[in-house]
């Protein structure tokens, strides 16, 4: 086909519009830049074509400069919206309204889901805001469900629910994170830059390894899966090996280090409850956490041990299996479960 300038006045020759626009917006790679610049230099007609794009882009820049809503307008708009959804004429649209025409709509809310939902949403949105900024610390939080994410250095983190981590904006230079709650870390190896995890009482230093940290009520439990880690606090400086579990208490000189083969702690990451001669109270504690319930065990059942793997099962399914395995009775009332002979 003849590539004469006048055969196709609608499009550029030898280059795609997408690339020109990318170049215009500074979205191109150095290779792309070289290509576009060579193309621009090749023919004044090319430059002319590009000028059109440039012109349109620049002219549209200030087209809607005064179109920004202020924070006050946004707040006023929200108030207006709120009144609208609470108007009695919309009662039928909302469940649980027993007194039409009298009261404004009460929004269907159970206290806990409400608190959790708000918290997660606020955390989500602040995280989005944090991420789109350059300054401040970066943060992410898991509130109602566990969450897995990759850090800028490629390290993988799984946060259990009700846990959060924050790390500095210059994380790639300084690999430090601050943890509240529980998380599993799989650290990308980098001998030049040790990776540090701070909880409120201990510092964990690693070079490249995987481990679980659980920090609840002044107690920190660390289980190493691979590699070595170094744990320090004001009183200790300890190396932890694979399959070892270290337990530290804030402000307490005692420390426990034990070999562990229990895999149960992984449940929030793997969605599996691995029970290997696991005492029933121990499984119950994990289930309580995972399903937000309270499990009361009759003292006569406390020594029962269970061997199985629950994989992606509902709490009811798990309770059924426990009932059948031990021939015991599980009764549920609200969020409380009672296990009895």
């Amino acid at each position: 086909m003849n590539k004469d300038l006048h055969t196709d006045p609608g499009g550029p020759h030898g280059i795609h519009e997408d690339l020109l626009v990318k170049y215009l917006l500074g979205e191109t790679s150095p290779d792309d830049n070289a290509r576009v610049e060579a193309w621009l230099a090749a023919d004044p007609a090319n430059r002319h074509f590009y000028n059109h794009f440039q012109l349109i882009w620049r002219e549209s820049r200030h087209l809607y400069d005064n179109f920004n809503a202020t924070d006050e307008q946004t707040d006023a708009a929200w108030q207006k919206f709120r009144q609208r959804v609470q108007r009695p004429t919309h009662l039928q649209a909302v469940k649980g309204a027993s007194d039409p025409g009298q009261r404004p709509v009460r929004i269907n809310r159970s206290t806990w889901t409400r608190v959790a939902a708000v918290f997660l949403l606020v955390a989500s949105i602040t995280s989005i805001l944090y991420l789109t900024r350059n300054a401040a610390d970066r943060q992410f939080a898991a509130t109602t469900t566990p969450l897995t994410d990759t850090l800028p250095d490629g390290s993988l983190i799984t946060l259990n629910k009700r846990s959060d981590i924050s790390y500095p904006a210059n994380f790639k230079k300084q690999r430090t994170v601050r943890l509240q709650g529980e998380a599993f870390f799989k650290i990308a190896p980098d001998k030049e830059k040790p990776f540090k995890v701070y909880t409120d009482n201990v510092t964990i230093t690693v070079l490249g390894t995987s481990f679980n940290v659980r920090n609840k009520e002044n107690t920190t439990e660390i289980i190493v899966e691979s590699g070595l880690i170094r744990v320090t606090d004001s009183l200790h400086d300890v190396i932890v090996h694979p399959s070892e579990k270290l337990i530290l208490h804030k402000g307490d000189s005692s420390l426990t280090k034990e070999g562990t083969t229990s895999q149960l702690y992984k449940y929030y990451r793997t969605k599996e409850f691995i029970c290997d001669n696991t005492p029933l109270p121990q499984l119950a504690a994990s289930l309580e956490e995972a399903y937000d319930v309270k499990i009361v065990i009759d003292p006569s059942l406390r020594n029962l041990q269970i061997n199985t793997i629950f994989r992606n099962q509902s709490l009811d399914q798990i309770l059924n299996i426990i009932q059948e395995t031990f021939g015991i009775r599980a009764t549920r009332s609200g969020s409380q479960i009672t296990l009895q002979p």
Binding site: R82, I107, R109
Partner: peptide, 10 residues
């Protein structure tokens, strides 16, 4: 869940 405060954030 029609959570009002959550909706406000959105």
């Amino acid at each position: 869940r029609r959570d009002e405060t959550g909706f406000e954030q959105v």
